[in-house]
Design a protein around this nucleic acid. Sequence first.
DNA 1: CGTCTATTTGAATGTACTCAAAAGCGGTGG
DNA 2: CCACCGCTTTTGAGTACATTCAAATAGACG
Lengths: 211, 211
Amino acid sequence: MICKFAQTIKVVIVDDNKTLINQLLDHIKKHVRLSKEEESIIPHYFEHKEIKKRQYLLNSDSLVKHDFFVINGCLRTFVIDMNGNEHNLLFATENWWTGDFKGFYKQEMATQNIQALENTHVLCITKEGKDELVERIPMITLYFNKLFENAIIAHQKRIEQTLCFTAEERYLDFLKVYPNVSQRISQKHIASYLGITPEFLSMIRKKLTLP
Amino acid sequence: MICKFAQTIKVVIVDDNKTLINQLLDHIKKHVRLSKEEESIIPHYFEHKEIKKRQYLLNSDSLVKHDFFVINGCLRTFVIDMNGNEHNLLFATENWWTGDFKGFYKQEMATQNIQALENTHVLCITKEGKDELVERIPMITLYFNKLFENAIIAHQKRIEQTLCFTAEERYLDFLKVYPNVSQRISQKHIASYLGITPEFLSMIRKKLTLP
DNA sequence: CGTCTATTTGAATGTACTCAAAAGCGGTGG
DNA sequence: CCACCGCTTTTGAGTACATTCAAATAGACG
């Protein structure tokens, strides 16, 4: 049985945009072997969405309906502190998953915001959709588990770095690990991700170019 | 088929220490319903171990053989930076899982260290043991998935807090969220967890008691 | 071309650290 | 049971790292 949601978006994905869903299928197939029948099931659970630069995909205090797979473009996930300052948690580009994790899995209000830094295409899935998908294709759990594993490893690395590294070291690591991302986003947003002010990042960069 | 490892430890758990494994079974049964037969399978995959205060359960640069479920006592997981300073990542007490996550799931050398802050009893499982357990009791995946979910949520919260909160705010939140843990460990270790020096934590505490 | 935003620069400030020393506390052995 | 030893916590002075605020410059976009 396919959920109501899947019915409504069938047209968008299945008829219009084979290439978009193929990009996701390729990503899944890096971790799990899929039969032709299974490949034909998956598209029914995803909705395609385009977000123009500067537009929001998710606002805090709204219900978290979807998790997102980025086809192309660039998204930033951020929180707003008590003083109204924004802090970037994550940048998501091609083949990254993003969303308000806690809100999605606990089906709560969002505490995070997601904004497009470029015109961006995403595939959206609901919690019910994902649960049903896992039920129909149990093997796909391996794929989602791998995503969880990688997320935990990445989070642990970031926590370790804030404890062990200076701002300069964290910046250099960011450039090394995400060279393609760092070229596409402003220093202001990188500074926010690193937990420093744009002015201080500017000083770090100046110091690095001197010798 | 039971792995060689499971055979060797059968005696330790099944015959000697029913109560220890029952604590783990109770924890699992909060998330998954288990048949009597399944309950009888699980003990074969865990080895009991006692670590005395100040002893190490894991050293960085050694192969990560086990993940650990804490029965009682208290463990700290920490990394050592380039200057030789230790930074606490996690405290694990009763009913917590701990281990070098990346090392365990990728079967690599440890980058983290685990030391007992109190005399501690743990149940250990190997990666092969866990994989085989999941194969024999597929439903138990739900339990481990829930652990992953909670880990990601906790990690995200910690990253958000380092970006949004001052050291004082992070300390107050730590006291609120882990009241029982914070009473059992030294300020030195709490300071390390919060990413500040013990001297600075002492100042924060002094300031908090004044008004 | 003008407007809006991002980046740079500099001065003053604040937050947290280092180093050193004193005080407190807990465990151990006589 | 008390005295001592080692480790933790506190206190203080001086310092380094990072921020705030303000203003100038540079870039991006319609």
